[in-house]
């Protein structure tokens, strides 16, 4: 058994997290897509804190001695998943960023020796006039 004190702290904590996540989504500070893992964390922790029977059988199942360790264990497990999830997202963002940087670079093309590429300059010239006018 966990103490009533710890139970109250765990329930209030996970309930608070749940409401905070919902509030962030409501204010569009957190995209729905990213709320999934946080929501799952809050719900599972709330379930474990409120439902003594589940916590007891889970503690037995994972071979833990104290039921409070089961709470910490699942809390930590979710945090690890979240961090891994972020690493995956960062890798994706980096890949996209590199592709964008390359596209920008491809737009910066500078040709040396204008004499060799007169036809290109001739094509560009009217556009320049239009901009200036």
């Amino acid at each position: 058994m966990i103490s009533t004190h710890l139970r109250i702290v765990a329930i209030v904590g996970s309930l608070g997290l749940l409401l905070f996540v919902i509030e962030l989504v409501r204010r569009r500070r957190l995209k729905e897509e990213y709320s999934v893992l946080w929501m799952a964390t809050a719900v599972v922790l709330l379930l474990l804190a409120a439902w003594g029977g589940l916590l007891r059988s889970l503690t037995h199942a994972i071979g833990a001695v104290a039921q409070s360790s089961t709470l910490y264990f699942f809390g930590l497990l979710f945090v690890i998943f979240l961090l891994l999830h972020f690493s995956v997202r960062v890798s994706l963002l980096e890949r996209r960023l590199t592709a964008l940087v390359q596209e920008i670079a491809l737009l910066t093309e500078k040709r040396a020796g204008p004499a060799q590429h007169e036809e290109e300059l001739a094509e560009e010239a009217p556009e320049d006039d239009a901009v200036n006018a």
Partner: peptide, 28 residues
């Protein structure tokens, strides 16, 4: 300097590493 020497030049706006730089050339 590359441009003065007669090369076509592309400039990555931020430092992106060796592979990304090469790949820009492949794309070109």
């Amino acid at each position: 300097e590359a441009s003065e020497a007669g090369a076509i030049t592309l400039s990555l706006p931020v430092n992106s590493g060796y592979g990304a730089t090469l790949q820009t050339g492949y794309k070109y």
